[in-house]
Simulated assay, not measured.
Amino acid sequence: MSIRLQVINNRKTKLLETMKKITNRLLTGLGIASLLFFFSPQVTAQSDNPGPRIGIKGGLNFSQFFVDQPTVEDENIKVGLHFGIFTKIPISSFMAFQPELLYSNTGSKVAYGGTEVGSLLGIREGEVRYNLNYIQLPLAFSVNLGPVNIHAGPYLSYLVSANVKNLRTSDLTTTNTIDLNNDDFNKIDYGLVGGIGFDLRNVTIGARYNYGLREVGREGLAANLTNRSRNSVAQLYLGFGF
């Protein structure tokens, strides 16, 4: 029992450390955005009726699963990419609807320890990297305060591909690999997005957080390895509107 409590405490500590890392990355990105905003000579406030906008955007993903599994010894952020198109449709002088269509790469890097419980679930000691690639449809509503926008809303994603790779196994053999693919993970994911951005004429820059509401693993080994995991993704983005 004491060992399990220690594992739980270690997981809580790791979770707090990871959230601090994500927060620091977001704050760094927002700091850069703020400097660009305040020192750019081209900054202008939005007009009362800016009209619909369409554009392209892309940036970095910082994702992690937060696996609720006592065999997990360590879990690290995976850096990925997202890119796609967006449109901004005014609803009023200060509010707009902003649907997007994005390709988004998420996942995590997880180290598992060898335990009797883990072996019964098919979990071996080793380190595994998860790569999940989605087509994502965020449907955000934004409040525009001059060139600053605060946005939030739901998102819906479809899993187009999944790649799970052993980075390290206890016996270091090439035959002892994890064989998981798209069918082992839920094809549909949904959740919430929220963030802040700055519009510098035709350029938009900002940070966003995606919180998944559906478990990643579907059944069997994938469900055991990613027990109760949901997509958790912090994003930094840059976009160009037309």
Rank of each mutant, 00 (worst) to 15 (best):
R4W: 10
I8T: 13
K20D: 14
K21C: 00
I22L: 15
R25K: 09
L27I: 15
S34C: 09
L36G: 14
F38R: 05
Q42L: 12
N49C: 03
G58R: 12
G59E: 05
Q69G: 05
E73C: 01
K78Y: 12
T87F: 00
T87A: 11
P90I: 09
I91C: 03
F94P: 01
F94M: 05
M95A: 14
N105G: 09
N105Q: 15
A111H: 08
Y112G: 04
Y112M: 07
T115G: 11
L120I: 15
G126Q: 12
E127D: 10
Y130C: 03
Y134L: 02
Q136V: 14
L137Q: 11
N144I: 00
L145R: 01
N149K: 09
N163H: 12
K165Y: 01
R168Y: 12
D171N: 14
D171P: 00
T173Q: 10
T174S: 15
T175M: 01
D179V: 10
I188E: 03
Y190Q: 07
G194L: 04
I196D: 06
D199E: 13
N202C: 07
I205E: 03
I205M: 12
R214K: 13
R214W: 00
V216K: 06
E219D: 13
E219Q: 11
E219M: 06
E219T: 10
G220C: 10
S229H: 01
G239C: 05
G239T: 07
F242D: 02
